[in-house]
């Protein structure tokens, strides 16, 4: 298959970026999207130019490192996949493919298609955890957890932190990312003691970092490679209301 690629190139954070057009030929339909970019890069190196930088790591859809905005969709034209799991058979021969980095104020471009997503870590650091230290914890079976709650918590916990929800949201809102963590921990008895303080702190950090507000368009849910549901956002809203109105703890 042959493609025309329009790729965002930007030397560094301060540089002005632009789109560059590349032609690429004889790509197997079984080739993954990132392997197609590898082939492009190898040809660029052979032409003595600088290859296109893009984040990637596990290439099996779990590390959350890859993330490209392809033809108007985060992770491209397939549902429930990361960019590394997207295959060229999802495109038509001769298609023009426009590749952009994630766009959001808290995600500055580092180079080409690589963006800085440390904002996600910063939100987790505000309270996306249960404050236990190593050792001194009760037996794993000391507190039974209803299966359906454990399963729901697992669904929320399957977030890979790729940022597609933010990239997809017309407001660049991080509500699904934060909501999934808040929900996971709110569902589990172990997470309850810190629930009220956690949601307040994480939301405050999210706002401070410059993410947009949620307007319930659910683009996040539609593009999440792990199919995390919008009910996580709803649950976070509830936790937030309870924390602000019922709880005596303030931040």
């Amino acid at each position: 298959m042959d493609f025309t690629l329009k790729i965002w190139r930007q030397e560094n954070q301060k540089a002005k970026g632009r789109f560059e057009t590349y032609k690429i030929k004889d790509i197997s339909p079984d080739c993954s999207f990132l392997e197609m970019l590898d082939i492009l890069n190898e040809s660029l190196v052979n032409k003595l130019s600088h290859p296109v930088c893009f984040d990637n790591d596990c290439r099996e859809g779990i590390c959350g490192m890859c993330g490209l905005y392809i033809n108007g969709r985060p992770h491209g034209p397939d549902d429930a996949v990361t960019t590394c799991q997207l295959h060229m058979r999802k495109f038509t021969d001769g298609e023009t493919i426009t590749i952009e980095p994630w766009r959001a104020k808290p995600f500055p471009v580092i180079r080409d298609l690589v963006v800085d997503r440390t904002a996600l870590d910063k939100m987790i650091q505000e309270g996306g955890y249960i404050s236990v230290t190593s050792g001194g914890v009760p037996d794993g079976n000391a507190i039974p957890i209803p299966k359906h709650k454990a399963d729901q918590a697992m669904d929320s916990a399957s977030c890979i932190g790729c940022g597609a929800c933010i990239a997809a949201c017309k407001n660049a809102s991080a509500m699904l990312f934060v909501g999934a963590k808040v929900t996971q921990l709110a569902l589990l008895p172990q997470g309850k003691p810190e629930a009220a303080i956690r949601v307040q702190k994480m939301v405050a950090k999210m706002d401070e970092l410059g993410f947009g507000n949620c307007t319930n368009t659910y683009a996040c849910e539609a593009e999440c490679p792990k199919e995390i549901k919008r009910s996580n956002i709803s649950r976070m809203n509830l936790e937030f209301i309870l924390a602000k109105i019922v709880s005596e703890e303030t931040i």
């Binding site: 037996d139 794993g140 299966k147 454990a150 996971q184």
Partner: peptide
């Protein structure tokens, strides 16, 4: 395992709510 449960890792559970 105990540490993981305390950290909020949603290990698979049976219908009795046990690991």
């Amino acid at each position: 395992i105990d540490q993981g449960v305390a950290q909020g890792i949603p290990f698979a559970r049976d219908y009795a709510g046990l690991l």
